[in-house]
Design a protein around this nucleic acid. Structure first.
Lengths: 210, 210
DNA sequence: GCAAATTAATGATTTATTCAAG
DNA sequence: CTTGAATAAATCATTAATTTGC
């Protein structure tokens, strides 16, 4: 098992970190001089050659772009902006700094999350409004002392497990926006809730501090 | 009154377990569709909204990375990093598609930038005997495009940081002679900031309560 | 044992990047 | 050069753990 002669470069954590740092800092295509210097520096942390540095940047840049492109195209083939919800959630249209928009009517951005695809995973417990309207009917079934419940791993039911498997199988894009077509549809849509509920808009206090 | 509603989501043990299991299984940035399903499913175990799931993954991923980086940074401080091989523990395979580029060959045109700007100062620390073995015969082409320099972020040793700064400052491209076009160039900080504004990442123990 | 006080975790927001399209 | 979309980093804020004095 001598570390000898691996056929290809294997960056050490330090090297990788530094390279990534440089990449983040803007370096994309270092020239010969830069590569020389980078190599010299990184060689302090492990075996490395100039070509490794060169290829690393090439590959990293390419894969970055590729990843982004894939994401974009996926995005584009969706007619429905459903995908954008969490983005807007995270980036409110305007900085409502102190003003919490409690006016039920307006509140643009957060509104566009039409629950067309509100697929409650299987059954809903006693008529809960699911993710929408928190009607506050949930009985918190946990008054259990924290320290007890703390480490209960492995109490996952096989049901949960299967569900998760399916969940993860779904590679990424919801694909076809319109119903049917190729829809895994492992979830029953029992509640065609149609956004009539006031939900986030009034439950999201948006900086409700104070 | 019913102020009972706590201002933030508090995951139940079941919810947390399932989320962690998913994370372990590879889910990092679920899309809206996935989030919806996850939310619906987890709502069986307690109150939860889509944004909770969204934030959970964001935070978990970020803190995971952070933890890892901290660990690596600590290792960076080691004297002889030469023998660190615990790298693939957490890094996805780099996927250097098999092809070994032992002789990039081909385009030899770009050797032009041979001006040895091997800067003085903190370049090439003395012990770098390893580096000397690298012959560095570049014969690949590399164009040197623009290079934005922005700095910040330092989770490396101040040595690394300074070195990188210098590295990036080197605007080597033979392009535009000296006419500094029109760039406010506000991102370039040349001042000897010294180690006072390093990020806490690897230097400060934060609060140090003891 | 018990709360007040303090510290550690972590949920929720904001800010700063990135790449590529316009 | 500017902008859109998306993410990651940094930060704020609140909850849970824990320490501590009684």
């Amino acid at each position: 098992m001598s570390p000898a002669a691996s056929s290809r470069w294997c960056p050490t954590p330090e090297q990788l970190m530094i390279l990534e740092e440089m990449y983040r800092s803007g370096i994309r295509t270092p020239n010969a001089s830069q590569i020389q210097k980078i190599t010299a520096h990184l060689s302090l942390y492990g075996k490395i050659e100039g070509k490794n540095v060169f290829y690393w940047f090439q590959n990293h840049k390419a894969r970055d772009r590729q990843k982004l492109r894939r994401k974009l195209s996926r995005q584009l083939q969706l007619e429905q902006p459903q995908q954008l919800f969490y983005y807007h959630l995270n980036h409110p249209p305007h900085q409502f700094h102190g003003a919490n928009f409690d006016s039920p009517a307006g509140s643009s951005a957060l509104q566009q999350f039409s629950y067309e695809n509100n697929s409650p995973g299987l059954l809903l417990p006693q008529g809960a409004g699911v993710a929408s309207t928190q009607v506050m009917n949930y009985s918190w079934k946990m008054d259990i002392p924290h320290q007890m419940v703390e480490m209960e791993k492995s109490m996952m039911t096989s049901y949960d497990h299967d569900w998760m498997m399916m969940m993860m199988m779904e590679k990424s894009p919801p694909t076809s926006p319109c119903c049917s077509t190729t829809r895994p549809l492992q979830t029953l849509q029992l509640f065609p809730i149609t956004a009539t509920n006031l939900k986030e808009e009034c439950t999201t206090p948006k900086k409700l501090s104070a």
